[in-house]
Amino acid sequence: MANVRLTDIRKSFAKTQVLHGISLDIASGEFISLLGSSGCGKTTLLRMVAGLESVTAGGIEIDDRDVTSLPPEKRDIAMMFQSYALLPHLSVSENVRFPLRMRGIGSREEQQEKVAAALETVQLGHLSERKPRQLSGGQQQRVALARAIVSQPKVLLLDEPLSNLDARLREDMQVELIEIHQRLGLTTIFVTHDQEEALSLSDRIVLLNAGRVEQQGTPDEIYNQPATSFASNFIGSANLVPVEITDSAQGPVAKLEDGQVLHLDPNEAIRGKATLALRQEDLTLSANGMGLKAKVRTRVFLGARNRYVMSLAGHPLRALTANDLDFANGQEIALAIDPARIRVIAD
């Protein structure tokens, strides 16, 4: 267990700069997610912490020790790869024992005890003599997890480890990751592009966009108080509607590009050009009630819910509704939203 400190990390490949000065303080035992779309630099940042990628400028400290120029093997970290990277010529137990053997941790007997314990943790004790290729994807993934935690590294680095699993297994593994983190308390850096995964697993989320930190905070903060239009769109896929906010007799109102007007929370302070972040699940649709007029474009049946894609003031707008609401394509409908649920972001 150790803290990790990144100071103004920059990275350039050839002439393109992919990380523009990222500073992060990660507390000992914290589970932190680097969240962002592909190409935002999250994996590069993780690989720099691992020592697999050189640092163009800036510093990395692990456990208050400068490791910026140390090779990976001297950093006392463990990394779990998206492709699991199990060694195909070694059995499951040899794979898990590998970091202990290479780091010279304990005697042979102690190593075998630790391997057995780690495999028990991921419930794979009975498969220890198999070769990786004889295991299913989910099992391989658990072996990779056992191998990552067996040496009790100072920092555990997870590079989209769940993205190759099907939905059911992914949920199981999320629970398993949370439990293992609670039990072992390893400082963990988790890279993902899946906002739900980041929200459910992390103590803190760092949202990256184009090589910069867009926003960081607890999952609750990130979800409920997105600071920028990018953050609100990325987390919860909120709809972004450009408006102009002015005062009226009934308090602040937002004027859409087509002239429609939406009443805002009386305490809203922002005026002028702004962006409204409207969450899909906060929108209430009705055939002829009060509210903004929008036109239905498509319905996507999701089982428990429906998703409607509408057109509002020329912009596509998505809403999640109960699955018994039935509107026809092209139908004009009314759109209502609780003013308290509207998030206003100044441009």
Binding site: P72, E73, F81, L87, F98, P99, M102, R103, L157
Partner: peptide, 22 residues
């Protein structure tokens, strides 16, 4: 898979150990 060598490095192998063991 090049990731295997990287994985070995993160597990405590020096470059030469990676060559030898992986």
């Amino acid at each position: 898979d090049g990731k295997l060598e990287e994985a070995a490095r993160t597990m405590g192998c020096s470059f030469l150990q990676t060559i030898r063991t992986v």
